[in-house]
């Protein structure tokens, strides 16, 4: 009985491997992202990749007559995966920075985001400038633009880097860190979640971070992506994504006067009301 079972299993395995090879008739576009930043890159209840970036990836692949295959890769592994050719492009809310541009090519920005601070209510920090002092502790996500920003703008503070955003937030709610620097959407959500222990402080006078699709240096896909993004914007693709994934956030941002993520249909960018 045991032997029959194991033969059956082996047959099943071989069959599934074969069908996996045979099924790939349409060309596949391999897209890398870290599925850990809802609603941009996340998994739905069934465990399937879902979110703004997933939809963009699918639309981009479709515009070239291909099918998108999403690969979930940890943040630190995204750029190496591009360089080694494991994926064709990365769409993962990745900010276009000069340092990263030495490693990869970026498309034009498809979204713009601002950094914000999640400040603990027990901390003496009242303005962003208060953070640049001895004894102040800032938690950041390892390798994020918040990490870079903190090290550049608050040299006197202690910077603690973590793999997980939740750890960064917990450091603040438990008073181990004064503030957590991250994008304003995440900060805003956490300030609601932990309203009794934290408050959100928006960093004044910063340049917007543009998020781009990343490609291996010299890739021919970059130009195609720029053409796709122009069409997608003009066709109202981003309005559709806002409606689908970010309806509530859009309402709140509008109310507070914060600039929203996506360009207007005419290609202009919204500005902050502050």
């Amino acid at each position: 009985m045991k032997r029959i079972l194991s033969i059956a299993l082996a047959a099943l395995l071989i069959a599934s491997l074969l069908s996996g090879c045979a099924g790939a008739s349409k060309k596949v576009l391999k897209v890398g992202m870290e599925l850990a930043y809802p609603p941009f890159e996340t998994k739905d209840a069934a465990g399937q990749p879902s979110g703004v970036s997933v939809d963009i990836a699918k639309a981009f692949a479709e515009s070239m007559g291909m099918t998108a295959e999403i690969q979930n890769i940890a943040w630190d592994g995204l750029i190496p995966s591009l360089q080694s050719g494991k994926v064709d492009l990365v769409i993962s809310s990745m900010t276009i920075t000069a340092k990263r541009e030495e490693q990869v090519d970026f498309s034009h920005a498809y979204a713009k985001a601002y950094l914000a601070l999640l400040v603990g209510k027990g901390s003496p920090v009242k303005t962003a400038a208060d953070l640049d002092a001895d004894g102040r502790v800032i938690s950041v996500k390892q390798g994020s633009t918040g990490d870079t920003y903190a090290r550049a703008h608050f040299p006197k503070a202690t910077i603690r880097a973590f793999d997980s955003e939740n750890a960064c937030v917990t450091e603040v709610t438990q008073g181990k860190a004064d503030a957590f620097i991250y994008d304003q959407l995440t900060i805003y959500r956490n300030s609601l979640q932990f309203a009794d222990k934290t408050w959100a402080l928006f960093l004044p006078g910063q340049e917007a971070e543009g998020w781009g699709m990343a490609f291996k240096t010299g890739s021919g896909l970059t130009a195609k992506a720029n053409a796709f993004l122009a069409t997608y914007t003009a066709d109202g693709g981003f309005d559709g994504l806002t409606e689908k994934y970010l309806k509530q956030e859009k309402a709140t941002f509008d109310q507070l006067g914060f600039a929203f993520f996506f360009a207007n249909k005419d290609g202009s960018w919204p500005t902050s009301g502050q």
Binding site: D76, K99, F162, D163, A167
Partner: peptide, 18 residues
Amino acid sequence: SVISIVELTQTIKEVNAA
């Protein structure tokens, strides 16, 4: 390294981020 103790792995992670 996950609680930001800057031992060897955390150091490499920080270096790698740059």
